[in-house]
Nucleic acid binder design. Structure first.
Lengths: 108, 108
DNA sequence: TAGCAAGTACGATAAACGTCGTATAATCGT
DNA sequence: ACGATTATACGACGTTTATCGTACTTGCTA
């Protein structure tokens, strides 16, 4: 049964600014995105997030449904990656500035 | 009674990315910000927003408390303006990219 | 094949959000 | 002094959000 093969992702054209900004406005999710930006692809469990597994699932789903990340099943895990190209195509420069802002804030 | 003279605004240093992104993630508020960006300073009532007055008050308050706009009482109205400089100082380039993204989305 | 590890599904819950309506305050004109 | 205008305050309301715990599924591996 390869049902998990079909995890729904919005297309590039379907990306909505409001949903993206909302997805990025949560500290846990912003941390996921920043980690992913620095470090390529990661499984869900490898982030050391201060929340339970089910809450993780929830946050990854919010990010995926907003089109910020994509998830690909691989064995029992899911490999996450940033949808840099799609975000850049739809909202040029936005992701980078958010990431800059996040590290600027962390440095303060 | 000049109590209304002291509307609380966060300082530049107090701006938080999460709060700013959340403030910008609502369509009504994003429209307020876009209008303000295009048009300098405006009173609350002059936006033609599709919500009641009390909801307007609410949205302007969210934007002000996030540090996105400032409000200055003037007669019976409040004059709103974007806190461009503070946002730019704290999160360089962010506001412009969000505004670009908003108009890109509107054009699609 | 039996167990383990990684995630998901689902239900519960408390808090926050966006909206409204009504009532109130502050200021300007007349 | 009065009314009109502009906006806030407060309470209500239904919805969404972020969180958890428990139960389940899936695939690897010993």
């Amino acid at each position: 049964m390869l049902a998990a093969e079909r995890i729904p992702h919005p297309t590039r054209e379907e990306l909505e600014l409001g949903a993206v900004l909302h997805a990025l406005s949560d500290p846990v999710r912003l941390r996921i995105v920043a980690t992913l930006a620095a470090d390529g692809t990661r499984t869900c469990g490898s982030f050391g997030l201060p929340v339970t597994k089910s809450t993780c699932t929830y946050h990854f789903r919010v990010l995926r449904e907003a089109g910020v990340i994509s998830q690909r099943p691989e064995g029992t895990t899911r490999v996450n990656s940033l949808r840099r190209d799609d975000l850049e195509a739809r909202f040029p420069g936005l992701l980078d500035k958010v990431l800059d802002a996040a590290s600027a804030e962390a440095a303060a």
